[in-house]
Amino acid sequence: MLNKLSTYFYQRPRLVLFLFLAPPLLYMLVVYLGSLFLLLINSFYYIDDFSGLIIREFTLRTYAQIFSPANREIFARTATMAFFVTITSAIISFPLAYYIAKYASRRLKTWLLIGVTIPLWSSYLVRVYSWKLILAQEGILSYFINLFGLNGVLQWILSFESIGGSSLALSPLGMFIVFVYIWLPYMIIPVQTALERVPNSLVEAASDLGAKPLQTFRTVILPMAFPGVIAGSIFTFSLTLGDFIIPLAVGNSKFFIGQAVYSYQGTAGNIPLAAAMTMGPVVIMIIYLLIARRLGAFDAL
């Protein structure tokens, strides 16, 4: 019986393929893409200001609201944060990624990689929470800053309007630190993978031909590591764009995209506006992913 069935399937590879593909594809297409599509449709509806009901007519007026000065500011603020978080993560990730790829012994490499992947997979929420303890005014960071007599420096930095605030826990600077901390592993891994593919002989050849270490880095290593940086930036950029937990937990009262969407959808019940606002990050990320695939970043994932 089973043999017959086996032969039956063996002779019909297309049928087997269909049976294999149908469940995951149906799930992802219907549930996930279907939901995304509905969200897109909702962004073309609008909410009646008086009744608070969603009017299901095609309109672009909700999109027009996105370009109100207040919302434009939210987009600019979030994109700026995502940009700096990405750049900083890329820079910070290099020493560790390079060390793992080029210097660590086989044994040490395994452990270092575990050391990087554990924070990547472990609870995002708990990792955010840890910074509430650290950044608190009476907390551990302030203690050490005072201990080293650096309080004046901190106050000076916090006095800048764009990054400062009443304390680190309530400032964009604090938020920036938390973002970098949270997304850094997402950058280290692809950069390390990319660096792993730089042949040592190439680095040696560069120095044999008279390149200084910095020159080798700039002209040989960096270009080859670049797909890794792009791959990592998919995560750091996208995750920062949409995050609303970190701004809620650490930031000041100035909204980020995620927070705005969260409150439009929740308290205001304005699903069309929330939907339209999420389309910003969606479009940015889809373009980003397509470019990244072109640049070969997916191989570095």
Partner: peptide, 23 residues
């Protein structure tokens, strides 16, 4: 296929969340 499957983690969680909620 990879592209489709990676979308839920490549797109910000809030997008997936609000899309599913709307649906």
């Amino acid at each position: 296929i990879s592209f489709l499957l990676v979308l839920p983690i490549a797109l910000p969680g809030i997008v997936s969340g609000i899309a599913l909620r709307t649906a």
